[in-house]
Every structure is written in structure tokens, then in C-alpha cells.
């Protein structure tokens, strides 16, 4: 909680009452009624891990995880699934769910009649997305460890790393949502996510690409998320990992600042 209010205080938008946690509480209550949806989110990355990692992995054998280090395919693909799940979860929460609350349920109209301000809305919703993401990544990490594809205790740091990915994508997702007009626009979000999911050195190494297009892949945020978690899960940690962290931190902070401003403009007319 204190972390939440510290973040809240740092934001340059009208003071709320530091009650963002009550919005998190609201979301937790709402999800008690729809727990199937909440729980079902755990399974997607696990299904991918077993399908591609284990089923297809038998056909592939070992893969170069960077720097000539060969690992079995499941160990290569597992961190990517964890990073991609963090991205997908955060984007779903901050776009689809947020849009519904904003435009249809009019949730924030009633919230803003209370002492809560736009800042509490932004911080509360992002905190909720992160908590939910933490549930998913923890479960996934346990499954991956049980499947024997986690190679190092560094992997514990993959949990905060996944939260960082979630923060970066949730903040940007929230900003984008404030511009959306109708459900049809969600197809464009899909258009940005799917190629990232498939092409960010998730399923096969960067070296598969021709030199000339590698920089495109390396420019995407998911590439950095995947690379960061892969280093941690394989215990292959060097100073270079900080570059990935820095990329995502900048994206997250810029996104939160912008999203909060946009939400204020949208709600306080």
C-alpha cells in the first residue's frame, strides 16, 4: 500500500485521496463473481509451454539461447511464454476491461463522485492489473519449475520482472484505450500484439532473422521482456540485463504519466 501511495504522490495530476487501494478491493470483489475467468487465465501460457515446448520441442532438440549456450527447446520457450503472458494479461486488463468500465459500465463516473480522483483510478487499475499478473506469473513459474525448465534461482527475479513488463504494457494500453471509439478498434490492438508475440525472439532465436531486420525485432518492448526473463530463468545474468530493465522502466513511467493525464481529461470535463 505504501508503495502505491508513493507512486500516487509522485504523479503530477490532481490529488486524489490516496484511496487507490479501495479500487483494487472493488476489482477483487468483482472477480469473486467471475473467478472462472480469473483462473482460466493461468492456463494459456501453460498450454503453450506443453504444446510447443514439450510436444514440438521433441522434434527440435537443443537451441542456441544466445552466446552459443545450448538449451533444450522447452527451457528456451518457457521464459518467452511467461513474458508474453505478462504482456497479454496487462494489455487485456488495461484495454478491453478498462474500455468497458469507461464507456459502458460508467464505473468511474460513480467513483469520481467520491473522494477518489483520476490519479486513484489510474494507480488503482494498474495496481490491480499487476497483482493479477503476479498471480499468473507465479503459477507459471511453479509449473515451469516442476517441468524442469527452470535452471537457476535467479528465476525468482522473473516475478518482479514480469510485473515490470505488466506495468509497461498496462500503462501504454491504458493510454491507448483513452483514444478508442468502439469495439471495432480493438482489432488494431490485436494487430500490434500478435506479431510481437510471434516475432520477438519468443519461439526461435534472434539469429534466425537476417541481420538487416534484427534491429526491428530488438526495438519491440516484448523482445526486451523476453530476453530479460530468459536470462533470469536460465541463470545467464550479466550487466547487459539492465538495458532491458531500463527500456521497460522508461516505457512504464512515460505510459503512466500520459495515461493519468488522459484519464483526467476524459473524466473531468
Amino acid at each position: 500500500m505504501s508503495a502505491v501511495s508513493t507512486i500516487a504522490r509522485a504523479l503530477p495530476i490532481p490529488a486524489g485521496a490516496g484511496l487507490a487501494r479501495t479500487l483494487v478491493e472493488r476489482n477483487a470483489r468483482a472477480f469473486r463473481h467471475g473467478w472462472v475467468t480469473l483462473v482460466s487465465g493461468v492456463f494459456e501460457p501453460v498450454f503453450y509451454l506443453f504444446s510447443l515446448g514439450v510436444g514440438l520441442g521433441a522434434l527440435i532438440g537443443d537451441v542456441d539461447a544466445g552466446g552459443g549456450r545450448m538449451v533444450e527447446y522447452a527451457a528456451y520457450v518457457a521464459p518467452a511464454m511467461m513474458a508474453a503472458a505478462a504482456m497479454n494479461g496487462a494489455v487485456f486488463d488495461s484495454t478491453f476491461n478498462l474500455f468497458f468500465k469507461l464507456k459502458y459500465a460508467k464505473l468511474y463516473d460513480s467513483v469520481l463522485a467520491t473522494p477518489l480522483g483520476p490519479r486513484d483510478v489510474a494507480v488503482g487499475e494498474i495496481s490491480w492489473a499487476l497483482l493479477r499478473g503476479l498471480l499468473y506469473s507465479t503459477t507459471f513459474l511453479l509449473v515451469a519449475a516442476a517441468a524442469g525448465v527452470v535452471h537457476s534461482w535467479w528465476a525468482l527475479l522473473a516475478l518482479p520482472a514480469a510485473s515490470l513488463i505488466g506495468l509497461a504494457f498496462a500503462a501504454v494500453g491504458m493510454s491507448v484505450t483513452t483514444y478508442l471509439r468502439s469495439w471495432q478498434d480493438f482489432d488494431y490492438i490485436q494487430l500490434a500484439l500478435l506479431p510481437m508475440f510471434l516475432f520477438s525472439a519468443t519461439f526461435y532465436p534472434l539469429s534466425t532473422y537476417d541481420e538487416s531486420v534484427r534491429w526491428v525485432v530488438q526495438a519491440t518492448p516484448l523482445y526486451h521482456g523476453v530476453a530479460m526473463i530468459r536470462d533470469l530463468m536460465l541463470g545467464d545474468v550479466a550487466w547487459g540485463i539492465l538495458a532491458h530493465v531500463a527500456y521497460l522502466v522508461v516505457m512504464g513511467v512515460a505510459g503512466v504519466l500520459f495515461a493519468a493525464r488522459r484519464i483526467e481529461r476524459l473524466l473531468l470535463r
Binding site: 484511496l19 478491493e25 472493488r26 468483482a30 459500465a105 460513480s110
Partner: peptide, 17 residues
């Protein structure tokens, strides 16, 4: 809040205060 029950609507709203 249509995702909540009648009672929860009051509970959650009170917590906002």
C-alpha cells in the same frame, strides 16, 4: 456497479470514502 451485488455496491462505495 453491475459486477457486484446490491449489498456490495454499498460496501464498496463506502470504502471509496
Amino acid at each position: 456497479d453491475e459486477e457486484l451485488t446490491v449489498r456490495e455496491n454499498i460496501l464498496v462505495y463506502g470504502r471509496y470514502f
